[in-house]
Simulated assay, not measured.
Amino acid sequence: MTEKIVRAHTNIALIKYWGKRDEALILPASSSLSLTLDAFYTDTSVTFDNSLQSDTFYLNDRLQNKTATEKVSTFLNLFRKPAGISSPALIKSTNFVPTAAGLASSASGMAALAGAANLACHLQLTQRELSLYARRGSGSATRSIYGGFVEWQMGTCAADSYAVPIDDADWDIGMLVVVVNSRKKEMSSREGMKNTVETSPFYTGWLDSTANDLIEIKKAIRLQDFQKMGEITESNGMKMHGTMLGANPPLSYWEPDSVVAMQLVRQLRQEGISCYFTMDAGPNVKVLCRLTDSEKIKARFAKQFNPEQLIIAKPGEGLKVLTK
């Protein structure tokens, strides 16, 4: 019997998602825009099996604890209910990306789980419907349903807060991911986000400015204006981290090598190499660049970082079904 596996790639937000207006439904406080990457992904299968006593979840071939399994079970119930299924499930997931290290493992993980649950339940959901479901597992997962540049539209309610593809990114675009630290972070994105929204005096300004950033970056993408796109990406990411520094207590995911990487990007720009940095809720730095410049940029970073810390990524594709 062939096993069907669903692969979803991570995405890196260029216009950030930071803050919810509804915690339970994971409705964002603003729209966001991302680039799906080919280098990091999750493969997941779901099989309903009445011989099991309860849902059983393996991540990277390791049986997961009750807390992790309950989170997956709650998400699977969103699919089981409309399908009229009550059987326990065997969930097998392999992360080709460090978990909870600020490299969007939850985005690829929950998007792959949504796709695998859809297959197992024979629901035949559209990509838009899958995007709505994936959002309930992880906000950024709503964007990993698609490849290329993707916008998560904040919407007005749970029914219209989903992602839409913007551009297939089939032009000279790449990203160098600088893995400063692949360990699990001390404060999750969800906790950091909540604390920032509730306590940072800068947060309202962030929301006001990010709406305009989204309009401008979509124009830049449409015109394939790499410099403008990069400038907006870098500015938007730093504004998000500024809101965290204004939280109580202040929050920073940066490490010394994060700053080293950002400074090197600025230095490369001064030398005429067009590249821009962004960071999510973690210490790792993503360098947006032209794919044709990526090896040259990697070589410069290799003078200050180990080769295994440097990963070149191309634009990735949307959900894909594999057979094993």
Rank of each mutant, 00 (worst) to 15 (best):
A8G: 11
A8N: 11
H9E: 08
T10M: 01
I12M: 14
I12A: 12
A13K: 06
L14Y: 00
L14F: 11
L14V: 06
I15H: 03
K16Y: 00
Y17V: 08
Y17M: 10
W18C: 12
W18A: 13
K20N: 12
D22A: 08
E23S: 09
E23I: 02
A24N: 13
A24K: 15
I26P: 04
I26N: 14
P28T: 08
P28E: 12
P28V: 07
A29D: 13
S30P: 00
S30V: 12
S31M: 10
S31T: 05
S31I: 06
S32V: 06
S32K: 10
L33W: 02
L33R: 10
S34N: 11
S34L: 08
S34T: 15
S34A: 15
L35R: 03
L37W: 01
L37S: 02
L37D: 02
A39M: 05
A39P: 06
Y41S: 14
Y41V: 07
T42K: 09
T42V: 14
T44P: 13
S45A: 15
S45H: 03
V46D: 05
T47R: 15
F48R: 14
D49L: 13
N50G: 00
L52I: 08
L52A: 10
Q53N: 13
S54M: 08
Y58N: 03
L59A: 14
L59M: 15
N60T: 04
L63M: 05
N65W: 07
K66N: 06
T67G: 00
A68W: 01
A68F: 06
T69C: 11
T69S: 14
E70M: 07
K71C: 01
K71P: 01
S73N: 07
T74D: 07
T74G: 01
T74R: 13
L76H: 04
L76C: 09
N77D: 14
N77S: 13
L78Q: 09
L78H: 10
F79K: 02
F79C: 04
R80T: 00
K81A: 12
P82E: 09
A83E: 03
A83P: 00
I85S: 00
I85T: 00
S86G: 04
S87W: 00
P88I: 06
P88H: 09
A89N: 03
L90I: 11
I91K: 05
I91R: 04
I91S: 05
K92C: 05
N95Y: 03
N95T: 09
F96P: 01
V97A: 04
V97P: 01
P98G: 12
P98M: 12
T99A: 14
T99L: 14
T99V: 15
A100K: 06
A101V: 07
G102F: 08
L103R: 09
L103E: 08
L103F: 03
S105I: 10
S106A: 14
S106F: 03
S106W: 04
S106N: 06
S106L: 03
A107G: 15
A107D: 11
G109T: 05
G109R: 10
A111D: 07
L113S: 09
L113T: 05
A114S: 15
G115W: 05
A117Y: 09
